[in-house]
Write a protein that binds this DNA or RNA. Structure first.
Lengths: 214, 214
DNA sequence: GAAAGTATGTTGTAATTACAACATTTTGGG
DNA sequence: CCCAAAATGTTGTAATTACAACATACTTTC
């Protein structure tokens, strides 16, 4: 198991190596690898597992019965997912979780939190609070990206956020065209088309997943 | 101050009356009333206040420079808002918070958490974790309501959720037409029009904010 | 209970998006 | 290097939505 990524995670912030090893045991840490496209969780499932991505990345998505996909979030290396469902274990998942690329996930049993001593548990809970709080901001930021009525507005809203996060006008985004379209809730072809227009209008330059705001 | 609503809140679950009174003091609880339409927070503000609605309701919204409003969430009596910003006090708010109707809000200083003793604080943090986790589910449920590409799909997605929550095919929604339109990210007139069509098609019955799914 | 104000419903047209079909480019094996 | 497969770009048409303008219904206040 790739311990080093876990050691730098928010969840184990403030814990030393020994404590982390013990915690991993106590929480029945289990690692699993997935190929790109594999489904890790399906809508309707119940889980008490807090999930941590140690390699690759996964998408949190909603797939309707007509095959339309909406990507709610992309969870990369070093980040957590399913924390809400793990902590509210009677709530069935509303989303699917898929491997966006080949990836490795570590599962931690939140049911086992009850067996920990008070001090350790409350330190863990404080860290969990940071995780859920940040996830909250992440979820709402998608709302801003999809709030504009027009495609160009959504693209700009999204690119702006990334640009601010990366402190640069030039950056790579973690999505391919189809994923970006599904994230912004627009047609892939319309997205491609609009990106072309925006380049012609001198707003941006882009090639594949590399973007530059002008 | 309306103590009874606070006593039944998730935040103070497990605390007795004496403890709650002391906590309210320790967290500098302050109450404020707002008239319908008043702005409680504006995008860009910084706050460490956990906010609790003791009467009325507020909307969490994003207003762009062209006057388009997107309602991300409606926070009613007995619920909290701004918890993410209160807990990450260096992050400026991305949203506006407005009084959806005349309302009363209690502000609790999260900065003051540091002054509490360990036991009390960790009990509070555990409750805060519940609040943020539930808020997470709430935020993602809006994503499902806006995921369908067409207006009818969005309306149905939303009405289904409410129907399930209220365990009934007949219910009131907390939005007026303009608010519902802003929540579903569609034009108000298009929404009204589609609701009429859906009634003609025998899918629903509705009058003002009262709905029945057939 | 009128009048004014607000909320909701209706309609037509302009603008935008969805969808399908196809062209082009890129990628990864063999 | 070539081929096949995947990803991205382009285009045209049908369908949907945005927007404005107006009609109707409901509320509030005097």
């Amino acid at each position: 198991m790739d311990i080093s990524v876990l050691h730098n995670s928010i969840l184990f912030k403030g814990f030393d190596d020994t404590e982390i090893s013990e915690l991993l045991k106590a929480l029945n840490a289990a690692e699993k690898k997935y190929n790109k496209g594999a489904m890790i969780f399906s809508s309707g499932e119940i889980t008490d597992k807090l999930c941590f991505v140690t390699a690759g990345g996964v998408t949190i998505e909603s797939n309707d019965m007509w095959g339309n996909r909406t990507i709610l979030n992309l969870v990369g290396k070093g980040q957590f997912f399913a924390e809400s469902y793990a902590l509210l274990p009677d709530v069935p998942m509303l989303v699917d979780v898929c491997a966006a690329e080949d990836c490795t996930v570590v599962f931690l049993s939140m049911k086992s939190l009850a067996n920990l001593n008070d001090t350790i548990r409350s330190r863990l809970l404080a860290n969990l609070l940071t995780i859920t709080t940040r996830k909250n901001l992440h979820l709402s930021s998608r709302s801003f990206h999809t709030a504009p009525r027009q495609v160009r507005g959504r693209i700009m809203a999204y690119l702006n956020t990334v640009s601010v996060q990366k402190h640069s006008h030039e950056f790579d985004i973690p999505f391919d065209r189809q994923q970006l379209a599904d994230y912004l809730n627009v047609e892939r072809s319309v997205l491609s088309n609009e990106l072309s227009k925006m380049q012609r209008d001198g707003l941006i330059r882009c090639k594949k997943s590399h973007f530059e705001i002008i």
